[in-house]
Design a protein around this nucleic acid. Structure first.
Lengths: 400, 400
DNA sequence: ACCTATTTGTTGTTTAGGACAACAAGTATC
DNA sequence: GATACTTGTTGTCCTAAACAACAAATAGGT
């Protein structure tokens, strides 16, 4: 017998907060499931049928959900109505990269309905990215069908984001330092803007819509050309830290090697598991993850195999630590780590188990992420959607 | 601007759950503060005065709190009543060690009112510890004053505890494997029994009553003769992991050294920061933490200083990783790590900052724990108290 | 085709519990 | 001693969820 002390708020609850909580709970379920039967909502929430009816009616009046008759019968009895997010509710997703900025439109039901990628000079300033984002958003808004409601903008930042005020504290690859990105983009667009670290948002997306759906304890590791980022969900909540900088799993020291990572720290996971090393070996100049994956998959030379296994060993050392620290249910890999894993899944798992405590590792599963190119787009859009969902009746949606 | 997605339950709330939540909130505040004015309760909870009155009346009828007139005035206006936990509500704390088992009695107000340490043979079995604990508990119950109500038993385990069923999965120093400790001790005593990892409970205690009070993101590191354990609080919640094995921070690999820790893993924090190494150097056979601390404090030889700084360097490597992973507000040290830290606090902090990302480390504070010998006693007692507090009106207290 | 069992939607009523308002009680200041 | 201020206490109001009863829509059996 053991208890889990839940998150503590010290606030009391009145009937008003109950209503808010129930509206939030129903809307979240509709959002997460994309569509769900009313009968399932009553079953999951434990609320009375009549209460669920009232809640959905209110959400429908707010323009957040729509009901429709479900096709195909689900058994005896009067068929239940299907509840789905209102397709008119959308969010923008902004993804700044080193040479381009991508802006996408995501519906509350998780559909990516528009995406535009703007190439930029090789080292865009934050101001450049803000200007381009604002322009694209403005264009896109003009094309919206009438009645479209905008929840806000979510930005995935390849760097550290200060949660309290939406400032980009440091984005190494972009060279951005202390940029008040959220405030500035909010002024340009008149929309609510939310920032998040890219890997943390990827973690969020995989936990909500991807391979780690319904998993309460998970570790996410994401590796691209700019190094290794991570995200952690514990007790069903994102581990954010005091200021929002938590989850820098790539900068975990695992060896005494003097090799430096992109932030200048020696012997870290990021310094040992490197996309560049593989590209160099395969003599690929620039390559997509798919091209690299193909090379890895077809590797037969012992030199190639040794290199890949070395990388797997280093990855395993990092994952072992994370298993000891977090005892996750699932480890999710993304970016080129998926190719490494696929090359020899059993090897990676066995090495991880070897380097960690038997208890902590005994039920852990390693999986590749399921969201592919939509990972960061969906993750970033969750930020404004979260804000909307947590106060459905008072959140101010903006019209197109 | 950024949001923190809260913990998600999917359950709806009715007026009944509101009452439970409010009772829990008030009782928790009374417990955490040991005593608190009713006016402060209304201010903190945001509830109406009349509502707080009703809640406290119910808790008083349940025998959980008592009200008294506050001494000394606190300003203009009618003086507010003081609310305190009922001293008749207690929990047992059981702390098995390698050569003894200690049983303590803790009141809901956090007073340790009795403590008995039973020496045991050098390698007691779980059954031995259960039998001895049950005997001591039985004796102690006879001495209770009439009306005493028992919330249950909390056990601090120097090893891995499976949360779901209260089984000790593996306690290396004791040599215990897969022991259904909670079930057995519950049968012997007729009380609810809860288990927790010792370091995790120490973390909990420091976060609630010690140096990290009101801190929502903290990392706790505890080192004794049996190695290094840890605990983490993130978003105000203990990081427990999928099965309860999270927080094994001592087994984090930080170097390529082949030196093994007590669980056989190489190059880990525990293998490099060792109480034994210091004892050997100072030629102390067995020593209390105080004796070791005195030796460290008075070290003047350059060899001693080098050894201590080496240990500090290794400790810093581990802490740097934890800073990058958790971005904590506070790091709390306990056990002999306090002596290491006190030897050169600035050095440890600067080494931690050197090995971690500037952003993640910029506001971190390192502190020694404040609870000393009561650490595990208070921590373990929190387990039954948590169960009581989370359902005040339906929890079944046992009488003496 | 009709009847029954089953499930869900809908409507009207009840009820639990927090908010609110009004007043009493006790303290500090002038 | 008068006033202002804060808190305790009591009675009433109000919100929102539960409940009960009935209607609607389906599947399966005869």
């Amino acid at each position: 017998m053991t208890t889990n002390s839940g998150a503590v708020s010290n606030r009391g609850q009145s009937s008003d907060s109950v209503r808010q909580h129930n509206l939030t709970t129903v809307l979240r379920l509709v959002h997460l499931n994309r569509k769900i039967l009313r009968s399932q909502l009553t079953a999951i929430t434990g609320l009375n049928r009549s209460t669920v009816l009232a809640l959905i009616s209110e959400l429908e009046e707010l323009g957040l959900v729509v009901e429709s008759e479900s096709q195909g019968s689900s058994g005896v009895g009067r068929p239940s109505l299907m509840v789905a997010p209102n397709e008119n509710v959308v969010a923008f997703s902004v993804n700044p990269e080193i040479d381009a900025t991508t802006v996408s439109v995501v519906t509350l039901s998780g559909q990516v309905i528009d995406r535009r990628r703007k190439l930029m000079g090789s080292h865009p300033s934050p101001e450049d990215a803000i200007r381009v984002s604002a322009e694209v958003i403005s264009e896109m808004r003009k094309a919206f069908r009438p009645g479209t409601q905008i929840a806000g903008v979510g930005v995935s930042v390849p760097g550290q984001v200060r949660t309290s005020d939406g400032v980009i504290r440091y984005a190494p690859q972009l060279g951005w330092v202390e940029s008040a990105f959220a405030t500035a983009l909010s002024q340009e667009t008149g929309l609510n803007v939310f920032l998040g670290n890219d890997a943390s948002l990827g973690c969020l997306a995989e936990a909500r819509f991807g391979t780690a759906k319904n998993v309460n304890d998970l570790v996410f590791l994401f590796a691209g050309s700019g190094g290794i980022g991570g995200g952690v969900v514990s007790n069903g909540m994102t581990v954010g830290g005091a200021a929002g900088y938590a989850g820098e799993l790539g900068h975990m020291k695992v060896s005494s090697s003097g090799r430096l990572d992109y932030s200048g720290l020696p012997g870290t996971l990021e310094s040992l598991v490197r996309r560049e090393d593989l590209l160099d070996f395969f003599k690929l100049y620039v390559a997509t993850d798919e091209e690299l994956a193909a090379e890895i998959r077809s590797s037969e030379s012992s030199r190639a195999k040794r290199l890949i296994h070395d990388q797997l060993d280093s990855l395993a050392e990092g994952l072992s630590n994370l298993v000891n620290i977090f005892n996750p249910e699932v480890i999710v890999l993304a970016g080129f780590l998926t190719s490494l894993f696929e090359f020899d899944p059993d090897y990676l798992l066995s090495q991880v188990k070897k380097g960690s405590l038997a208890a902590a590792a005994e039920r852990v599963v390693i999986r590749n992420g399921a969201l592919g190119a939509d990972l960061l787009v969906l993750g970033a859009a969750e930020l404004p959607f979260d804000a909307l969902i947590s106060s459905p009746s008072s959140y101010s949606l903006k019209s197109a």
